[in-house]
């Protein structure tokens, strides 16, 4: 069973390494959206690897179930959390990095009702927005 222990150790260290990669990405990348790429993917993957390490190390049914529960929960909720943060960031008008090549979301949000259009707003929507303001 020493082989399984080695495998578990490798999983644990790899998971911790990916979490360090997430932290480095959060420090290094230039704007919120690219930072979210690193924080969402690498951190949930790192946690998953560490939990797989504990499963392989202890080999008990209760730990298996509990760790599996946490893995599934994290992988289901991480995208939802990043979706919420991304939406809030775009509505707060956080600037995108100057190297951004295309922004098809520009002008699609109605800043009063927070509705999101599926294609370009009609030409007179500017006037409607003005009327609402007055």
């Amino acid at each position: 069973m020493i082989i399984l222990e080695w495998i578990a150790s490798i999983f644990l260290v790899t998971g911790a390494f990916f979490m360090l990669v997430a932290a480095l990405g959060v420090i290094k990348l230039p704007d919120v959206f690219t930072r979210m790429h690193a924080a969402t993917k690498a951190s949930s993957f790192g946690t998953g690897l560490m939990l797989v390490g504990t499963i392989a190390y202890f080999r008990e049914p209760f730990i298996f179930l509990e760790s599996l529960l946490v893995i599934v929960f994290i992988f289901l909720t991480a995208p939802v959390a990043s979706h919420m943060i991304g939406r809030a960031a775009y509505l707060l008008k956080v600037p995108l990095w100057q190297g951004t090549v295309v922004d098809q979301l520009h002008g699609k949000y109605n800043l009063h009702t927070h509705e999101l259009l599926s294609d370009s707003p009609p030409a007179d929507s500017q006037n409607i927005a003005k009327d609402l303001k007055d």
Binding site: G15, M19, V26, A39, S43, M50
Partner: peptide, 23 residues
């Protein structure tokens, strides 16, 4: 939003610390 991303990541890192402590 940058700070929220950092807080989210801190919570997951603490989760990793707990797992390493258990191991």
């Amino acid at each position: 939003p940058d700070r929220i991303v950092a807080l989210d990541l801190i919570a997951l890192l603490i989760l990793g610390v707990i797992i390493a402590y258990v191991a």
